[in-house]
């Protein structure tokens, strides 16, 4: 069972209170982009064993989207943070580094 702290409500929300919304920090490629970029934006997703960044929605609660950093292998949650950002806050990165030295994910490490 996965329990994530909603950064808006401050409550520890059970997985069944939430809805998974896929990979976090996607860069949108819309009109004007190449076919390859658009293809990758639509279909290419990371599927790591280990550190992962995801979007979640507190669907039975406040209804807001937020981001979560967690380990897909152990379900350890490194933290949750606002979705209004382009990269994870330094505090989250530091927490991950302490638990998983040498981690990398996309452009982040």
């Amino acid at each position: 069972m996965l329990t994530l702290n909603c950064p808006y409500c401050g409550v520890n929300a059970d997985e069944t209170d939430l809805h998974g919304e896929g990979e976090a920090h996607l860069k949108r490629h819309g009109p004007g982009s190449s076919d390859d970029e658009f293809h990758d934006y639509l279909f290419q997703r990371q599927n790591p064993k280990g550190v992962h960044f995801e979007r979640w929605r507190h669907i039975y609660g406040c209804g807001k989207f937020f981001h979560a950093a967690r380990c897909t292998a152990t379900l350890q949650v490194f933290g949750t943070y606002s979705a209004q950002t382009l990269e994870p806050p330094q505090a989250i990165k530091d927490t991950i580094t302490a638990a998983r030295p040498g981690w990398s994910w996309g452009d982040f490490s």
């Binding site: 409500c9 409550v11 520890n12 929300a13 059970d14 069944t16 209170d17 039975y60 609660g61 406040c62």
Partner: peptide, 19 residues
Amino acid sequence: APVDLHPSTFQPGDFRRTR
């Protein structure tokens, strides 16, 4: 409800949206 309703965490005045 999937909520921790223990008296130490949920008291009169607390409000929760859930299922």
